[in-house]
Structure formats: structure tokens, C-alpha cells
Design a protein around this nucleic acid. Structure first.
Lengths: 174, 174
DNA sequence: CGGCAGTGGTTACAATTGAAACCAATCTTA
DNA sequence: TAAGATTGGTTTCAATTGTAACCACTGCCG
């Protein structure tokens, strides 16, 4: 999968959209590219729905989604749960505080920590968004067969852990 | 947007990470979220590889990937091929020109258009990146079974077209 | 105790991205 | 052929995001 065995002459022939060189990269079939396009399309559609209705960014909504299930978390706990970074969490939290969607209280046993929770209002919003989110997901999943749905789960899991490996010890030499 | 059918008592029980309310959203199983995390991990790893070695952003590399297969395209053609927007293309092109990876020439039949091509240098780089890109892809795909690989292709296609529909006529009322 | 390494969280600043305005060339149509 | 509409492409400005520095507090070790 390394060398490119074409002559220069071959190449010169190809100056229309139909010409495809054998060893070229077919971007539209390249997994990282497809993932990125797919993910952006999905995220943008959903971000728009959240944003319009509730003045929430996606990171802010993620924080709510976690706090909805797991009360009394600190920002550091959220970092762990969401794979978002410190700063993103901090900004999301400040949006949510501004909207009165969450409350923040001191942790007396460690005065650096701040314990976060959904407020009454926040829980209301949470309970209205969850079905909306599920509707989007159902709509997506609705385009798949049962078999595909099952496989997708395991596929994502595998790809995710492989990509995670890259992040730790980089791929290749490096 | 007011009611909340849990009692306060219910809620107070749940202050550990193990507590899960039945109708909550499980973010870690939520497809849009997983796609986003996966795509970011993959893109970041690859962006780093391209960037370090060749001073290329991902958009810039995408432009090269298309020009490698399809010579003599204009920026507008690239927009069509890549699903990137005008501005992103324009910026990518200017990076590539600065690096002497592509050439730009007037289209005499329409003096608004500028015809783009890989330069000699650009083609060299292209031919070195293609195997690198394929190596990343193979590594990812390597974690899947043959069956999964086949399915993934069709799954992505379906999800993509569903998400595309959203972009056109928005999901739900709106 | 007193210092100092590590943690929780925010702030400041630079780089990236997106939206809209913009300029120049072309096309349309009267 | 002149006026307005359209297209190709760039620039500008605001919003978003990432990185690094930073402050306050805790915990550890002498």
C-alpha cells in the first residue's frame, strides 16, 4: 500500500472529472472524512434545535445531560464523564449558571470544589430536551435495519478504542 | 414548561454516580455524541500527522486530495466535491499557494474562475501523504471484522442521507 | 508548623471558524 | 448595449475553541 506505480504519461491524460488514477485517495470513501462530514451534519442540526429553543450550546447541553443523570458532580467529575476539557466545561457551566439551569454550591470538605446540580428550571428543560434528543436519535436509527443498529454499536466501540490508542502512543514511529 | 413529576424525595436519593433515572439520556450511548467524539479523536490524530510533517491543515489536505485525482478544478468545483464551504476553500487554497503545493491560473474563457492544480512539489507531497492516510484508515479498519467493514459502509451512507434531509427541510415542526 | 508539589477552576490570549459584506466578471433581458 | 441579477472568490468581523498562564486551596514531607 505504499508506492504509486503509474507513469507520468498516465497522469497527463487525466484532466477531466471522470479520470481516476488507480492509487489515488478516494476522499468520499475515506473513513475519517466521512465520519467528520456525518458528525458535523448531525451536530449542526441538533445544535440548532437546542440553541433556538433553550439558548444552549452543545457543550452546555452535554453538561446538563450528565447532571440530569448524576447529581452533585464537580467540574472535574464532568471532565471525566464527558471527555470534554476543563475550559469547555467551565464555559458551559457559566452559561448554565447565567440561564439559571444549574446551581453551584461549595463543597465544605474541599473548598476548591464546587458541586453542581440542575436547578428546578434546569430539570424542566432537561426533561423537555431528552425526548427531543431521543427523537433525533430515533430518526437517525430509523434509517437502519435491526442488524445494522446492533452492529453499529460494536463498530463504534471498536473504532473509538483504536482512535484512543492513537492519542496515547501516537500511530507509527513518533 | 413547568411540571416535574418526581417528588423531591426521589431526587434526594440520587447523589451517587450509580444512580440512574429510567428515562434519562445516556449520553455515552447517544449516537450524535458518540459520532462527535469519535470523529474528533480521529481527526485530531490525523491533523497532527499532516500538520507536523507538511504544514497542512485538514481542509488544505482535503483540497489536495481532490486535486490529486481531479486536476483543473476551480474553487467552486472544490466546494461541490468536498462539501466544504467557499470560505474554507479559499483559505485552504491560500495556504497551499503559500506552500507552493498548488498552482493557480486564469481561466481565459471566464475570467472570474481560477484553475487549480497540484504543483510538482504538491504532487510529491500528495504521493507521500496518500499512503500515510491509507495507513491510518487501514489501522482503523483493522479493528473491524470483514462483515463489520461491509456494513459500516452502508450504515454511514444511510445515516448521511438522513442527516442530509434534516439540513434541507428541518426535522420536526420548525 | 512552613514550604512546595499537585488539583480545581477561571482568565487571558491566540488561532480557527462562520456569516455576511464585498468586489469583479459574466449572464440575462429589455 | 445598459441595468440588474448571478456567480466566483476574497475580505472583514464576530463567535467559538484551544493553549497556556494563572489563582486559590489542599495535601504532603521535612
Amino acid at each position: 500500500m505504499t508506492t504509486n506505480n503509474m507513469t507520468k504519461g498516465d497522469r497527463d491524460l487525466e484532466n477531466t472529472l471522470d479520470a481516476v488514477r488507480p492509487d489515488d485517495l478516494r476522499l468520499e470513501k475515506f473513513l475519517p472524512y466521512r465520519l467528520s462530514v456525518l458528525s458535523n451534519r448531525v451536530s449542526n442540526a441538533i445544535a440548532q434545535a437546542y440553541g433556538e429553543r433553550f439558548d444552549l450550546t452543545i457543550p452546555a447541553w452535554r453538561v446538563m445531560a450528565i447532571l440530569g443523570r448524576f447529581p452533585n458532580l464537580s467540574a472535574a467529575d464532568l471532565v471525566e464523564q464527558t471527555a470534554m476539557d476543563k475550559v469547555a466545561i467551565s464555559r458551559a457551566v457559566s452559561i448554565l449558571l447565567r440561564n439559571d439551569y444549574i446551581t453551584r454550591s461549595e463543597d465544605l470538605s474541599d473548598r476548591r470544589r464546587q458541586v453542581l446540580n440542575l436547578s428546578e428550571l434546569g430539570r424542566d428543560v432537561y426533561e423537555r430536551i431528552v425526548p427531543l434528543a431521543q427523537q433525533y436519535e430515533n430518526d437517525l436509527m430509523g434509517s437502519l435495519s435491526d442488524d445494522e443498529r446492533r452492529q453499529l454499536d460494536s463498530i463504534i466501540e471498536k473504532l473509538m478504542s483504536r482512535a484512543q490508542d492513537w492519542a496515547n502512543r501516537g500511530l507509527l514511529d513518533r
